[in-house]
Design a protein around this nucleic acid. Structure first.
Length: 583
RNA sequence: CGGGGCGUAGCUCAGCUUGGUAGAGCGUCUGGUUUGGGACCAGAAGGUCGCAGGUUCGAAUCCUGUCGCCCCGACCA
């Protein structure tokens, strides 16, 4: 492609509303342009990178026997009601009424649609397993779109779904996808880690996320310094931690007036107590179990992990669901903001769940069960007595988010380390959630009916581009990995005129003939402008053509990521470029 | 949804406090001189100042409303 025939609107100025470097460079380099919150134009360069990433994905999906389909983004709302995701997907679901008054959904993901399709054609174990994928635009009404392509309302996603007659088959195919994802991100040149993950609103039993490690990522990754454990913080377990209720009190219980101070931080400052010496006590409304309330206690500097809490509440008290409520009656009843763990023991149908790090001796400050009052010198045994031994009321469990420095769940002396990442891929074992809800059954060898077992597998194509730019850039601009660079080579004639022009045109033809994606900068611009633009848009190899080299029959080859250049004989240039691109 | 910020030329922004015919740099166009890391000279085009009301002789500027965009927060008491 000739520069003057395409649209590459580079800009010198950094856009003021772009916060992260990938967003800034992608706008400056003419890759993307924002149309509205969470929706971006892909300009020619951006689309080329997107296509290259998509093509790598296609090849690896095809290689594991996954067939490509294209399903509608436009979907009937009733389909989502059948699986209950009209509610569980919540406000993120883009929906609208059409002219007939029918509710429609713009698909944020396609479990319902693909299952509906497969069940129409697949009814025998002989037809299984079956894996299908598509690369298609998804819509999510994100609460707050941000950071360029990172969190958007409309985005390109590869989503795949597998259908199985038994768990062994699911596990085998899951492993194939897992391996294919490793190949895909490796081929794209993205540094990534694989972490254990929560399944979230997609549902299902097992799940891994592929994370591009990156300080601007929205997800927190927790890894063991022994390199044998990695998980999303939402999921990360914490190793064994000893606990005790039977330590000597640190002093007399002292009631402190703490008026109008919401939040651990402020109360702590007011009482001159560090958050790690405070008990954070949260009251959850519980349903479906032996208790109506679940009271969670963690150290003031820790965060309750709701999914861990829910799991623990289920195991200890048979609770099916928990929910924080904000209604005034509850606030009054529990003195919300000033709750002491003792409140759970006094309440008739309440279960108390304590994180091991909170179930310790030493100095504690906490709520006083009275609006605007806290206490100092809280002591578990003195304040709670023998009720602590009642398993129907009290349990100690891992109910908080992991934090840096925590013991590794491998219990091998490893310590957990935290870092940030961008989720670029996610694989799930779904089980029968969707086939049950929609009635996607098959007949086995004996003619018996079973729900199909499913897996699903997603890749955010746009996020591959973000991850690449975040990982590879310098003060001059982007440095694309060759595999997803918009063009592999840019020819920069020092002056597009005379012999230089002729040589540039000739080389352009040669590289094209050799099947190399080449951009010819045929603009009538000064060399500095062209060099700077070439650096900004990050093309891996640049060939400079000028009088100086031409006199000796040579071109100058410059790699984007290397400062030095090399002079290459005209007749050897195509081979040399190919060799450099293969590196 | 709560809080904060911002909407002025294609882009980055000034002007607003203290109302008086709309500015700069970059980019674009014309001519000329230049040409190995974002050239120079001369000239030119380009703006309903987000939108709608209001106050005023007069509004980019003051007031009200509204729309859009960005940031922070939104269970962690």
């Amino acid at each position: 492609m000739r520069w003057t025939q395409t649209l590459i609107p580079t800009q010198k100025e950094t856009p003021s509303d772009a916060q992260i470097v990938s967003h800034q460079l992608m706008v400056r380099g003419g890759i993307i342009r924002q149309l509205t919150a969470g929706a971006y134009d892909f300009l020619p360069l951006g689309l080329r990178s997107l296509r290259k990433a998509s093509q790598i994905i296609r090849e690896e999906m095809d290689a594991i026997g996954c067939a490509e389909v294209l399903l509608p983004a436009l979907q009937p709302f009733e389909l989502w009601q059948k699986t209950g995701r009209d509610v569980t997907y919540g406000e993120n679901l883009m929906k609208f009424k059409d002219r007939h008054g029918r509710m429609n959904v713009l698909g944020p993901t396609h479990e319902e649609v693909v299952t509906e399709m497969v069940m129409a054609y697949v009814s025998s174990y002989r037809q299984l397993p079956l894996s299908l994928y598509q690369i298609q635009t998804k819509f999510r009404d994100e609460y707050r779109p941000r950071f360029g392509l990172l969190r958007v309302r409309e985005f390109l996603m590869k989503d795949a779904y597998s259908f199985h007659a038994n768990l062994e088959s699911l596990n085998a195919v899951y492993d194939r996808f897992y391996a294919a994802y490793q190949k895909i991100f490796t081929r794209c040149g993205i540094p990534f880690v694989i972490v254990e993950a929560e399944a979230g609103p997609i549902g299902g039993s097992a799940s891994h996320e592929f994370m591009a490690v990156c300080s601007t990522g929205e997800d927190t990754i927790v890894t063991s310094d022994k390199n044998n454990y990695a998980a999303n913080v939402e999921k990360a377990e914490i190793g064994a931690r000893p606990f005790t209720f039977d330590a000597a009190p640190t002093g007399e219980l002292e009631k402190v007036h703490t008026p109008g101070l919401p939040g651990i931080e402020d109360v702590g400052k007011f009482m001159k107590v560090k958050p790690k010496n405070m008990l954070k006590t949260l009251v959850f409304k519980a349903t479906g179990g032996e208790v109506d309330w679940v009271v969670a206690v963690v150290r003031g500097d820790h965060e309750v992990n709701e999914s861990k809490l829910k799991k623990a509440a289920g195991e200890k008290f048979g609770v099916a669901a928990i929910e924080l409520t904000d209604d005034e009656a509850v606030r009054q009843q529990w003195a919300i903001g000033f709750v002491s763990p003792t409140a759970a023991l006094k309440a008739v149908k309440a279960g108390l769940l304590i994180d091991p790090d909170a179930a310790q001796g030493g100095f504690w400050a906490g709520g006083a069960n009275e609006i605007d009052y806290h206490v100092k010198h809280f002591n578990w045994r003195r304040e709670c007595g023998d009720s602590l031994n009642d398993p129907k009321k009290v349990a100690v469990a891992d109910i908080r988010n992991a934090a840096a420095g925590d013991p590794s769940p491998k219990n091998d002396g490893g310590k957990l380390v935290a870092s940030k990442g961008i989720e670029i891929g996610h694989v799930f074992k779904l089980g029968t959630k969707y086939s049950d809800a929609l009635g996607a059954d098959f007949l086995d060898e004996k003619g018996e009916k079973h729900p199909m077992i499913m897996g699903c597998y997603g890749i955010g194509v746009g996020r591959i581009l973000i991850a690449a730019v975040e990982a590879f850039h310098d003060d001059k601009g982007m440095v694309w990995p060759t595999a997803i660079a918009p063009y592999s080579v840019i020819i920069t004639p020092i002056k597009y005129d005379g012999e230089v022009k002729a040589a540039a045109d000739r080389l352009y033809e040669q590289l094209n003939a050799a099947g190399i994606d080449t951009l010819l900068d045929d603009r009538d611009q000064r060399p500095g402008v062209k060099f700077n633009d070439a650096d900004l848009i990050g093309i891996p190899v640049r060939v400079n053509i000028g009088d100086r080299g031409l006199k000796e029959g040579k071109f100058e080859l410059k790699r984007r990521k290397v400062v030095e250049t090399e002079m290459v004989a005209m007749e050897a240039i195509v081979d040399r470029v190919q060799a450099v691109l293969r590196e």
